[in-house]
Simulated assay, not measured.
Amino acid sequence: MTVAITVDGDDPGVDGPGGRRTTSHQGKRGGSTRRRVLTPLVQESTPAIIARKLHNAIANGDFPPGSQLTESGLAADLGVSRGPLREAMQRLTAEGLLVSHRNRGLFVVSMERDDIRDMYVARTAVERAAVQQVIAHREPEAVAALDEAVDAMRAFVDEPNGAGMAEADMGFHQTLVELAESQRLSRLHETILVETRMCLRAMRGTYSSGKERIDEHQALVDAIAAGDSAKADALMIEHMADGLRRLIGDGDDAGDLTASGS
């Protein structure tokens, strides 16, 4: 039996103030199903929760590049057994955030020159693709969201090398990739997100002007808003090359994203 229930406007599920809606509830004998309002809960496994905590700790600099992680110490800190902890650490090893040295243990990846270049090659590929997808979608809301992300950076214009500016900068790039509406691009970006944050911390102290840092991002947004794919692509490549130069120096190939490691 199907029972029709009329909901008045003050109910949270109503379409608008004073509006009315009929919602069907399915009885024992079947019939029409009601519209789903709430999404199912996602149950995280213990290893997944531990992996996320380790991700955050590495991203925040609590475990610097090259530092050793011991099972006994982490298990005590987290209050977990070594089984799920070991599984979580295996996940991070598969992602490249932890490296295993024989007879020595597990260490946070060291962001050496070649590691940084490789990470920027991957970032550039993902974000160039994201830019083209955002332009192809031609959604005004996307441009508005990117403008808001730049505005968030403007709040730190007087602190070009501060933690707030670095976080707002990262937020801009996260927003850009999310707006591409590609699960695979987002997944790829997520895998290099921690290393990106590590690099942004290392990049502090290299910017002399907050305005210039912000203007770089605004120029990219303007090119996207204009639908100028070629200009936006060129700006993204130069933006990434500039970041690479700031991290590894001013050598002849410092900003060359195609150069092989030495």
Score class of each variant (00 low, 15 high):
residue 115 D to C: 09
residue 156 F to K: 04
residue 144 A to W: 07
residue 217 H to G: 10
residue 50 I to W: 02
residue 102 R to L: 04
residue 14 V to C: 07
residue 234 A to L: 05
residue 208 S to C: 12
residue 62 D to E: 15
residue 95 E to K: 02
residue 76 A to Q: 11
residue 158 D to H: 10
residue 188 L to T: 13
residue 192 I to E: 12
residue 96 G to M: 05
residue 125 A to G: 11
residue 150 V to F: 08
residue 42 V to C: 02
residue 65 P to G: 01
residue 247 L to G: 08
residue 78 L to D: 00
residue 13 G to S: 15
residue 91 R to K: 15
residue 147 D to Y: 00
residue 23 T to D: 14
residue 148 E to Y: 12
residue 107 F to D: 07
residue 156 F to M: 00
residue 164 G to I: 10
residue 43 Q to N: 14
residue 43 Q to R: 15
residue 247 L to K: 09
residue 141 E to A: 14
residue 144 A to E: 13
residue 258 T to F: 07
residue 82 R to N: 11
residue 154 R to M: 01
residue 228 D to Q: 14
residue 43 Q to C: 11
residue 44 E to F: 13
residue 73 G to N: 05
residue 2 T to C: 06
residue 76 A to M: 07
residue 244 L to D: 08
residue 62 D to K: 08
residue 54 L to M: 09
residue 110 S to A: 12
residue 257 L to C: 05
residue 24 S to A: 13
residue 184 R to F: 15
residue 117 R to T: 05
residue 109 V to F: 00
residue 19 G to Q: 12
residue 56 N to A: 13
residue 123 R to M: 12
residue 109 V to R: 09
residue 204 R to S: 08
residue 91 R to Y: 08
residue 14 V to E: 14
residue 233 D to K: 03
residue 89 M to E: 05
residue 252 D to T: 15
residue 39 T to I: 10
residue 203 M to Y: 01
residue 17 P to I: 13
residue 98 L to Y: 01
residue 194 V to C: 07
residue 104 R to K: 12
residue 252 D to M: 14
residue 132 Q to H: 06
residue 233 D to A: 09
residue 9 G to A: 03
residue 256 D to I: 02
residue 34 R to E: 14
residue 222 D to G: 01
residue 214 I to L: 11
residue 177 V to L: 07
residue 219 A to V: 06
residue 191 T to C: 10
residue 224 I to W: 00
residue 89 M to Y: 01
residue 209 S to F: 05
residue 231 K to R: 12
residue 221 V to F: 03
residue 204 R to G: 02
residue 176 L to K: 11
residue 64 P to V: 04
